[in-house]
């Protein structure tokens, strides 16, 4: 692209930014109208959790979260269909290997904590899954070709587990007569925890597998514990 065109685009975008800023300023100075927050906070005692963000994600908009897991799975399927993963890096030096052997268990522990704490404080399946994914990324950077994940077959099952458990919970609530993903109040906390746990594992596996960047290569010792 030539220089005048770049400048022109820059100028137009500056104007655009000014318009957006003005709109944002006007929106801030107006009194807030009817907000969904009031409804969300009012029905919080019925949702089974006390953290409003978790309640929105896994209770009020559970359908949305279910489909989001489907998006993650679709992305992984796309990545796997593009070919095999690149070979991993060479095994890490002793300093990095020692650090990884400390940090990865800590990451898994913190992930479990975040999953549990999501019920009443900031945290939840996505944060915990992101930590598990980060553990996988670290392992791959330290030389593990498969990012610490089990065999391809197990990876497939784990990647689908989140959406499968979520859908089964939804079907279960349907059979129980409350409607798809409408938790009965007595069980809601445990159903949410079940769905979130499966989602955490799935998200972690999918993120780590996506980082490997392709279908896992078959190893000679396939099926052995990593």
């Amino acid at each position: 692209m030539n220089r005048p065109a770049k400048l022109m685009i820059g100028l137009l975008l500056c104007l655009f930014a000014l318009v957006l800023l003005w709109v944002f300023h006007v929106a801030l100075t107006q009194p807030p109208g009817a907000r969904l927050a009031d409804l969300a906070l009012a029905s919080l005692p019925l949702s089974g959790v006390t953290n409003p963000v978790t309640a929105v994600l896994v209770n009020y908009r559970a359908y949305d979260t279910l489909l989001e897991l489907a998006v993650l799975l679709a992305a992984l399927l796309g990545i796997w269909s593009l070919g095999a993963a690149t070979p991993g890096f060479q095994p890490a030096g002793s300093a990095l290997a020692a650090m990884v052997s400390w940090v990865v268990p800590l990451l898994i522990l913190t992930g479990g904590y975040l999953l549990w704490v999501g019920g009443y404080a900031p945290g939840g399946a996505f944060q915990a899954g992101a930590l598990l994914g980060a553990a996988g990324v670290l392992l791959r950077l330290a030389g593990d070709e498969r990012a610490g994940l089990p065999s391809e077959r197990a990876q497939r099952r784990l990647a689908v587990a989140g959406i499968a458990v979520f859908a089964l919970v939804g079907l279960g609530t349907m059979v129980a007569g409350t409607g798809f993903l409408t938790y009965p109040q007595r069980w809601s906390k445990w159903l949410i925890l079940l769905a979130e746990t499966a989602a955490t594992v799935s998200i972690g596996v999918i993120l780590a597998a996506a980082y490997a960047g392709g279908k896992p290569r078959s190893r000679a010792s396939d099926g052995a514990t990593p």
Binding site: L57, T65, A75, L207
Partner: peptide, 23 residues
Amino acid sequence: PPDPVPHALVLTGIVVAVSATAL
């Protein structure tokens, strides 16, 4: 109190953005 709905939207958005980037 802050509206939890945009917070949840952002969480959803981050995950979708990460997976789209990976693809």
